[in-house]
Design a protein around this nucleic acid. Structure first.
Lengths: 193, 193
DNA sequence: CCAATTAACTAACAATTGTTAGTTTTGTTT
DNA sequence: AAACAAAACTAACAATTGTTAGTTAATTGG
């Protein structure tokens, strides 16, 4: 895990601005001229820093997907109860989304436009879901987690975590630790009194 | 509630086909020529049945949004515990999504391209969320529902319900009643044993 | 079977798309 | 100040976009 101390390059700025626009209108609806205007330059100038529109999307999505893969690897190999691992997964999503909510929008909604990197992305995602399911199944076998339909449970939790990008930007006052705690409470203990 | 016995018009077919394509690539990435090809005709022929690409999106999204509004109205005015109302909301989402998963994709992802009808859509959505929150708050006041952060709870449940369109098409064997039951269990009782 | 409507077609439009080529400006290093 | 590299610019391209006009084929009701 290398610490990010590098100064932000112009390319980084472009990618960050693009992510913001992609969140608002989706990848396909954002033109290079839109992006250029948001950067205060002309469209052709963007190509001094990036190779193509595609490449911007790739940069946004793949780095995030790999961050999740990395995080899951750590959690998987950690020791602790299944419930503890679940709470770590919640934290992972809250942390990554807090740092880059705009990028998470692309990860969730624009991945189908990835072209060459699509297959790789789908592999990472499917592996991630498998590891997640393993943790849930382990918890059921350990009698930590109630024995309902695993797929429904996985779907429900993952849906909530994947939607965080819509929610976190609107609640900037709530700090990540508190949010992760509240979420874990709701997801694990339910709401029934 | 009028029963749908009308024969399916060509316009309906176009809208249904469009919804399917919109789900796969998003509204902006689907061209009228794509849609025409999927219908087995030429792009210009579509305009014998529809006024514009915009109108197709409008037709898909607004009818669904109004269906939810209608459903929530019924649930709100029904009598029963807050938990029972919550279970009815789950059923509402499962039923509507089962009938029209493709349309639900547009409702969730393409609403920002609604233009003239955008404001109306946002109003319906915000009212829906308010009613939902009211039911949760009522449940907390009645001591039926645990007193955690209402917004986090609302967000979590709604995220799951809104993601159903991604999941239901992949699990056609699971019948709606059973799915609604499983979902209610997970969302209300949590997963902790 | 004719008349009229419906729904398809071909051809084209003006605008917009991502991207390239070539040039000028800006900023830094010597 | 001269030289060099980085990053902006203008102008243009080929392809694709939603949509219209005008025309032909298919279907249906009297």
């Amino acid at each position: 895990m290398k610490s990010e101390l590098k100064p932000e390059t112009r390319k980084d700025e472009i990618i960050k601005t693009a992510a913001k626009l992609f969140k608002k209108k989706g990848y396909s609806a954002v033109t290079m001229r839109d992006l250029a205007k948001a950067m205060g330059i002309k469209a052709a100038s963007l190509y001094n820093h990036i190779n193509s529109k595609q490449d911007i999307l790739k940069a946004i999505i793949i780095s995030l997907a790999e961050e999740f893969t990395e995080g899951m690897k750590m959690i998987k190999s950690s020791q602790g109860t299944s419930i503890q691992k679940l709470k770590e997964i919640v934290k992972l999503h809250v942390n990554i989304t807090s740092k880059n909510a705009y990028g998470m929008a692309s990860l969730n909604n624009d991945w189908m436009h990835l072209e060459e990197k699509l297959e790789y992305y789908l592999l990472l995602r499917s592996n991630y879901e498998d590891e997640f399911r393993n943790i849930l199944t382990e918890g059921i076998n350990n009698n930590e987690i109630v024995d309902t339909n695993v797929d429904v449970t996985l779907f429900s939790i993952l849906s909530t975590l994947r939607s965080l990008y819509l929610w976190i930007p609107k609640k900037e006052d709530l700090n990540p630790e508190e949010l992760a705690q509240n979420l874990s409470d709701v997801l694990i203990n339910g709401i029934y009194k």
